[in-house]
């Protein structure tokens, strides 16, 4: 009896519990600070989602642990940095239209360039080590080191200031609550990307094949689909998404630096584990959990900000070892 109730209401109870938990920080701060942190947390969550979703699908579909994924994040930021530099007039123009235009161009350029990098990484490195996690870790770690060095060669070894399009700065004042504009844009971008991914996975043939492959790649092959072509494509898209996450984060933090990928890779792995391997929705929820927790805790108890996410991961794994939204594996 108690068990069936728990089964029926378990997910609702969990959601209610989570909401209560996420209202708790209110006890330690005033409401407008809470709102600022919440929006910053959601924005960070959305950017992390962009990194983690690719990692999760690559992990779920191909069973590949890809340490080079973080580098894609950095490359995305640097490609956008170059685009901003080249078309600086659009960045500094006091025109919402031009500012969004350059943002869009940067997204497309970063996505394409890094998707190609991802394709090369899959073909040259990962293709050789399917089936062996140890070799995957070693070879993609090696790839990460080399690609990071390449950043230093192409763009220089130093931190650079990432410009922010003029109209992305500033804020709205709603009932005395200051709401920064750019985090809202980042949240919107994340939601759009999530919707597009879902649409592709749910409505297109390729998307259905990818979801089938996450469950059983061998069967997908036996049905006549070239799984390696699908792997390459998914790897490229995953890399491209990380790139979009990277450039969004760079604008948020106003900087790019060669090692920036590694710093966020740890978050991405935590999110993938919390959300469940291969689940895009899991990545979104996991990323929001991590983004919010990080921001609240960083404000209240700065030294625990990363640790609390690892703690959340451990608790979720204890309750649900497959993560929140594991695909039917």
């Amino acid at each position: 009896m108690a068990q069936t109730i728990l089964k029926q209401w378990g997910s609702k109870l969990a959601i209610a519990g989570a909401i209560v938990l996420y209202l708790l920080p209110l006890l330690g701060m005033d409401f407008s600070t809470y709102m600022t942190l919440t929006i910053a947390g959601l924005a960070m969550g959305m950017m992390l989602f962009l990194v983690a979703s690719g990692l999760s699908i690559i992990f779920g579909l191909m069973d590949v642990i890809n340490f080079a994924h973080g580098v894609c994040f950095a490359y995305g930021a640097y490609v956008a940095f170059s685009v901003f530099k080249y078309l600086n007039a659009w960045v500094t123009a006091d025109s919402v239209f031009l500012n969004f235009g350059i943002f869009f161009i940067a997204i497309v350029a970063a996505f394409i360039v890094v998707a190609v990098v991802g394709m090369v990484v899959e073909r040259v490195l990962v293709r050789r080590v399917y089936g062996s996690h140890l070799f995957q870790i070693l070879i993609t770690f090696g790839g990460m080191v080399v690609l990071t060095e390449l950043i230093r060669i192409i763009w220089g070894p130093n931190d650079e200031v990432m410009p922010k399009p003029v109209s992305f700065a500033g804020n709205w004042n709603i009932f005395d609550i200051i709401i920064l504009k750019y985090p809202i844009y980042a949240i919107a971008l994340g939601l759009i990307v999530y919707a597009v991914i879902q649409l592709i996975l749910k409505k297109t043939k390729v998307g259905k094949i990818v979801r089938a492959g996450v469950e059983n790649p061998e069967m997908v092959q036996a049905m006549g689909h070239n799984i390696f072509l699908i792997f390459t494509g998914v790897f490229a898209v995953g890399a491209g998404l990380a790139a979009v996450g990277g450039l969004t984060m760079a604008i948020f933090n106003l900087q790019v630096y060669p090692d920036m990928g590694g710093a966020y890779l740890i978050f991405a792995f935590i999110i993938v584990i919390i959300g469940g391997l291969g689940s895009v929705t899991g990545s979104l929820v996991g990323a929001l959990i991590v983004g919010l927790s990080y921001n609240y805790v960083a404000y209240l108890l700065p030294s625990l900000a990363v640790g609390v996410n690892i703690l959340i991961m451990v608790i979720i794994l204890l309750i649900k070892p497959t993560g929140l939204f594991a695909a039917g594996k």
Partner: peptide, 26 residues
């Protein structure tokens, strides 16, 4: 395997290989 399947060979494995998260239609 994917070339072999496209020659016109259908395969039902021992564990059936159903995609549980996909609908019957999918």
């Amino acid at each position: 395997p994917y070339d072999i399947a496209r020659l016109g060979i259908g395969f039902v494995p021992e564990n059936m290989g159903i995609f549980a998260d996909l609908t019957v239609e999918e």
